[in-house]
Design a binder for these strands. Structure first.
Lengths: 140, 140
DNA sequence: TATTGTTATACTCTATAACTATA
DNA sequence: TATAGTTATAGAGTATAACAATA
């Protein structure tokens, strides 16, 4: 029909971009035995310090029942601890263990390798710009 | 731990961006009764003309069994026809019907409304730039 | 021998609701 | 009355393998 091939719409491009990136990060994280989202939790805990599960849910666009399972797997592997929350006795205070901090450093290296592989199509300044625009878009 | 809040890593930002956009497009497409991926198939058929299911699978990062169901629903709603492929008798030639072309126009309007809502955080030139970088990133 | 499409199956993810203990 | 977390369950989405027809 159309002889000129137009740019894919924003939504489809985002879908492709996310799928491609998720595959690359899955590969990079495989040797650590971590799922992408679980690795994301470690990164958030590293950035923000101890969080409640509710805070992690908001941060990762997840939901309550999924978060319970994610934290379970992290706790079983000794990477986080559930501690009583200092002011809210309903809440769990999710804290990185020493092993978790060691693992977090590995996760950051894996994420860096992944970003490197994913952004060979960009110049360094384009890469920086893309990242900045993407963060703004994600926040809305 | 860290007092300065660093930019979320690329992968997490992509996850957020995709989830946010998918929600907006789902809302915009609701009145048409179409899922996001199914609407994406219509868009591709409009851009590229009749395609085999295999081509649609590659285009949408889907898989064979899912594509059968997607095309089933499109065919049941009278938006596409399965025709014999002109040169490959194994393949199905997926063709937009007249009703499908009418619906496609609606889909494009819905997508435009969605993009409008999603990119209020950008200036027009930033929006254009983001779209272009995103397409390049998605292609790798 | 490989590929297109179909079907069936299993597995994962997500969404939802009920429940407790706290606020 | 509302919220944090847990648990159970159902639904959607995805992945896999077997199959028939054709390349």
């Amino acid at each position: 029909m159309n002889e000129n091939a137009p740019k894919p719409p924003l939504g489809l491009a985002l879908r492709h971009a996310h799928i491609r990136a998720a595959r690359v990060f899955t590969e990079e994280l495989r040797s650590l035995g971590l799922e992408n989202v679980v690795a994301g939790i470690l990164i958030h805990l590293g950035h923000l310090g101890p969080q409640t599960q509710r805070q992690l849910i908001d941060m990762l666009n997840s939901d309550k029942s999924a978060m319970v399972r994610y934290v379970d797997t992290l706790e079983q592997r000794g990477l986080v601890r559930r501690e009583p929350h200092p002011t809210d006795r309903r809440a769990q205070w999710i804290v990185l263990t020493e092993a978790g901090q060691v693992m977090l450093a590995e996760v950051h290296r894996a994420a860096d390798r992944g970003e490197e592989r994913l952004t060979t199509c960009f110049t360094p300044s384009e890469r920086e710009l893309f990242h900045e625009l993407l963060v703004r878009f994600a926040r809305g």
